[in-house]
Simulated assay, not measured.
Amino acid sequence: MAPIPTPSAQPDDAPDAYVGLDAGDAERLARSRGWTTVRAVPPGAIITMEYLEGRLNFEVDHGSVVRCWKG
Score class of each variant (00 low, 15 high):
residue 1 M to D: 15
residue 2 A to W: 15
residue 3 P to F: 12
residue 3 P to Q: 14
residue 3 P to S: 13
residue 3 P to R: 11
residue 3 P to V: 13
residue 4 I to N: 11
residue 5 P to K: 12
residue 5 P to N: 12
residue 6 T to G: 12
residue 8 S to M: 15
residue 8 S to L: 15
residue 8 S to T: 14
residue 10 Q to I: 02
residue 11 P to S: 00
residue 11 P to K: 02
residue 12 D to S: 04
residue 12 D to Y: 02
residue 14 A to Y: 12
residue 15 P to K: 04
residue 15 P to F: 08
residue 16 D to C: 02
residue 16 D to A: 07
residue 17 A to L: 07
residue 17 A to P: 05
residue 17 A to C: 07
residue 19 V to P: 01
residue 19 V to K: 03
residue 19 V to I: 15
residue 20 G to F: 04
residue 20 G to M: 07
residue 20 G to V: 06
residue 21 L to T: 02
residue 22 D to F: 13
residue 22 D to E: 14
residue 23 A to H: 00
residue 24 G to F: 08
residue 24 G to A: 07
residue 25 D to N: 14
residue 25 D to R: 15
residue 25 D to H: 14
residue 26 A to P: 03
residue 26 A to T: 05
residue 26 A to F: 03
residue 26 A to E: 01
residue 27 E to H: 01
residue 27 E to A: 02
residue 27 E to W: 00
residue 28 R to S: 05
residue 28 R to W: 04
residue 28 R to M: 04
residue 28 R to E: 03
residue 29 L to C: 02
residue 29 L to G: 00
residue 30 A to R: 07
residue 30 A to F: 09
residue 30 A to N: 08
residue 30 A to M: 06
residue 30 A to H: 06
residue 31 R to V: 11
residue 33 R to A: 05
residue 33 R to G: 03
residue 34 G to Q: 05
residue 35 W to M: 08
residue 35 W to T: 03
residue 35 W to D: 06
residue 36 T to R: 15
residue 36 T to H: 13
residue 36 T to G: 13
residue 37 T to D: 13
residue 37 T to K: 12
residue 37 T to H: 14
residue 37 T to P: 08
residue 38 V to Y: 02
residue 38 V to A: 00
residue 40 A to W: 03
residue 40 A to G: 09
residue 40 A to L: 07
residue 41 V to M: 14
residue 41 V to N: 13
residue 42 P to S: 15
residue 44 G to K: 06
residue 44 G to S: 08
residue 45 A to R: 09
residue 45 A to N: 09
residue 45 A to E: 07
residue 46 I to S: 10
residue 46 I to D: 10
residue 46 I to A: 10
residue 46 I to M: 08
residue 47 I to C: 07
residue 47 I to T: 10
residue 48 T to I: 13
residue 48 T to F: 15
residue 48 T to G: 14
residue 48 T to L: 15
residue 49 M to E: 12
residue 51 Y to Q: 06
residue 52 L to W: 11
residue 52 L to F: 12
residue 52 L to I: 13
residue 53 E to I: 06
residue 55 R to L: 00
residue 55 R to W: 03
residue 56 L to H: 01
residue 57 N to C: 09
residue 57 N to D: 07
residue 57 N to L: 10
residue 59 E to A: 12
residue 61 D to M: 05
residue 61 D to Q: 11
residue 62 H to L: 11
residue 62 H to C: 09
residue 63 G to F: 10
residue 63 G to T: 05
residue 64 S to R: 04
residue 65 V to L: 00
residue 65 V to A: 01
residue 66 V to S: 01
residue 66 V to W: 00
residue 67 R to P: 05
residue 68 C to M: 01
residue 69 W to N: 10
residue 69 W to I: 04
residue 70 K to D: 07
residue 70 K to I: 05
residue 71 G to V: 06
residue 71 G to N: 04
